[in-house]
Simulated assay, not measured.
Amino acid sequence: MTIPRRTLLLTALAAPALMSTPLRAQVAGPRANISSFQMQDWRGHFDHIGKGAILADLTSRALHYWGADGAYRLYPSSIPMTEDLTKRGYTEIVRKREDPDWRPTASMIAADPSLPRYVPPGPQCPLGTRAMYLGWSAYIIHGTHDTRKIGRPSSSGCVGLYNEHVEELYELALVGTQVRLL
């Protein structure tokens, strides 16, 4: 078997470039498919753990939890639909509720007058099976029955989790757990 000179020459010229390119960049597909969903260290975001700490990273659509006992959890989340619905900064969990009910805010009704004025607990409730209310009025970390919302901009300001994840977090996170939305 003979290899044409042109093939040898092109291979020799391309080899250094291929060897210096990270393997990740050689994989077929657009760069947008490379996930930013990765572990974080709490120390860059909080002075201490205290009762626990939650970081909702809206860019990577991930919620990180650190417990005072050293527990660490990482959950995929939904995020607000638009930047003007997004609140960023530090707050804390001020109350928790199993099987929450839901009432849309006045701004939600203004944006969509067809919304029901009240939804009782259950499979139609947009807050899922658990809700952790933050120090900011109308901002909640909650579950969802609509699993298509996770990983997408789909909320009116809240951070949504799969119901099984919010149930786990609900047991771990105490009232007073510090929260940062980034």
Rank of each mutant, 00 (worst) to 15 (best):
Y170D: 08
I93T: 07
Y75S: 04
P153G: 14
Q178H: 13
L169V: 02
I54N: 06
S156C: 02
S114D: 09
I140T: 11
G128M: 03
L169K: 00
A138C: 02
G122C: 06
P116N: 09
Y139R: 13
Y72R: 09
R73G: 01
G52T: 02
R43D: 09
I79M: 03
D101C: 00
S156A: 12
M81H: 09
H165E: 14
A28N: 10
H64W: 08
K96V: 11
V166K: 06
C125V: 06
S114V: 01
L8M: 14
G151Y: 01
G157F: 00
R5L: 12
M132C: 04
H142Y: 01
R73K: 13
G160W: 02
I141Y: 05
R117D: 02
L10W: 13
I49K: 12
E92M: 11
L115G: 05
P76T: 04
A62L: 03
R103K: 13
I141R: 00
D112M: 09
V175P: 08
K87W: 14
M39D: 14
S154K: 02
H45D: 10
S35K: 06
P100L: 02
E171A: 15
G160R: 15
L85M: 15
W136K: 09
P126A: 01
D112A: 13
Q40E: 14
H45F: 15
D47Y: 08
G128E: 00
D41T: 14
V159R: 08
G70K: 11
T82F: 10
L174S: 11
P104D: 01
A111F: 08
P120T: 06
L182S: 12
G176N: 07
V159F: 06
M132N: 00
A15F: 11
G50L: 01
M81L: 12
I150V: 13
M81S: 14
Q124I: 04
A111Y: 07
K87Q: 13
S36D: 13
H45G: 03
V27Y: 11
G29R: 08
T105K: 02
A62Q: 14
T147A: 12
Y170Q: 01
R152Q: 15
Q178V: 05
W102V: 07
C158F: 05
G29K: 09
P113E: 10
T21Y: 03
M108N: 01
L182Y: 05
R95Q: 10
P126K: 03
M108Q: 13
